[in-house]
């Protein structure tokens, strides 16, 4: 039976793929529906205050999700992002205590992120090691380095100018000023992924390394720069995190890597590479943020929030599979009905 169905499976792909292609549209629609529902049901939801808190909450995930999207589309993964952010945060604390200027601290923090990413890149692209193993290793390594750097201390006395800038809003809209920066990064990654030759190559790379080589994609170099990208942006998220909470600690942003990967996958990026869009991922980040914020307004505990995110993710992965399975089975039955009378 399996051998008879297998050629049919190829024929079954288009419909399933078309469904996935329109996934972005579905994601945006679900996001809008969720926002409308929340506004209607929760009296305190539709306000500038909500916009402010919701957006400022999602910024770290939104930022890191951008380079992560590219990494996953290219068929790799980076689980060390939250540790990189934590290491950056720890470094900021120590540097601030040693009396460095804020500008120096930010620059050094970004350089630290760049080095973290470059090490991942070297191990994955240079030595050809699997990124899952490498970044689980550096997840522990960078978090350990953060602990070594700052110990159990927390540095909280960052200058008010810096911390209030991070949480400041654009006029009465409630939109955080830093959101402009975040949007620029989103835009930059969207352009790189969807409008440049480099981005075109990433899809080929994620689908098949061989196919990418045949069109001249420099596989190792490409992967290296992707990891450098995640490192730098993770550092940026770490800087934001530190200033927003005005607290530099070694365990800042811990566990964030899974929230990022969950959002990216919910956004329709294939964990096997070769497929995904920035629009889908941004919608997913905002959807998770909205649901979480809405539930939090209703005083639902954080444990339940994690369950909701997990459930959303599983539904997003399982849903299309079930649809495909049903379609295949139906087609298979039709085929057998067609074949059985003729086969002698």
């Amino acid at each position: 039976m399996s051998t008879i169905v297998s050629p049919e499976k190829k024929a079954a792909r288009p419909r399933w793929q078309n469904a996935l292609l329109s996934r972005d549209a579905v994601m945006v629609a679900i996001l809008i529906a969720t926002i409308i529902t929340a506004s209607a049901m929760l009296p305190r939801f539709a306000s500038p205050l909500t916009v402010g808190f919701l957006l400022i909450d999602v910024i770290p995930v939104l930022l890191i999700a951008m380079p992560m999207t590219l990494v996953i589309i290219a068929g790799e993964i980076d689980l060390s992002v939250a540790s990189t952010a934590g290491l950056t945060s720890a470094l900021m604390g120590v540097l601030w205590q040693s009396g460095q200027s804020m500008v120096t601290i930010v620059v050094l923090g970004l350089i630290a992120g760049l080095l973290c990413g470059a090490l991942n890149g070297l191990l994955v692209a240079g030595l050809g090691l699997p990124s899952l193993a490498v970044t689980i290793g550096t997840l522990a390594l960078y978090r350990g380095l953060a602990l070594v750097t700052i110990g159990d201390d927390a540095v909280a006395d960052f200058p008010v100018e810096a911390t209030s800038f991070v949480t400041s809003k654009i006029g009465a809209t409630g939109i955080p000023v830093v959101m402009i920066g975040a949007l620029l990064i989103v835009l930059a990654y969207a352009v790189v992924l969807h409008m440049t030759p480099f981005g075109r190559g990433l899809f080929a790379l994620g689908f098949s390394t061989e196919a990418a080589k045949f069109v001249g994609v420099k596989v190792d170099r490409t992967k290296f720069w992707l990891f450098v990208g995640t490192g730098v942006v993770s550092a940026l998220a770490g800087i934001f995190w530190t200033l927003r909470y005005s607290s530099a600690r070694s365990d800042n942003a811990s566990g964030l890597e899974l929230a990022v990967v969950a959002a990216v996958l919910l956004g329709g990026v294939s964990i096997f590479g070769g497929r995904g869009t920035i629009l889908g991922v941004v919608s997913a980040v905002l959807l998770i943020g909205t649901v979480n914020y809405g539930l939090r307004l209703e005083r639902v505990s954080d444990v339940v929030l994690i369950i909701v995110t997990g459930a959303l993710l599983i539904i997003s992965v399982v849903g299309p599979r079930i649809a495909e399975g049903v379609a295949t089975r139906w087609r298979g039955r039709r085929l057998r009905a067609r074949v059985s009378p003729t086969s002698s």
């Binding site: 793929q17 352009v191 409008m195 440049t196 030759p197 075109r200 190559g201 899809f203 080929a204 689908f207 098949s208 061989e210 196919a211 045949f214 069109v215 001249g216 070769g274 497929r275």
Partner: peptide
């Protein structure tokens, strides 16, 4: 090796010339 099956006909047909296709770096 020859195709990226998930991508569209247009994307596949232009994959080898993606660099020549770009104007100021953008396609």
């Amino acid at each position: 090796q020859g195709l990226v099956m998930d991508l569209s006909v247009a994307r596949n047909a232009t994959l080898a010339v993606r660099r020549e296709l770009a104007r100021m770096g953008l396609i």
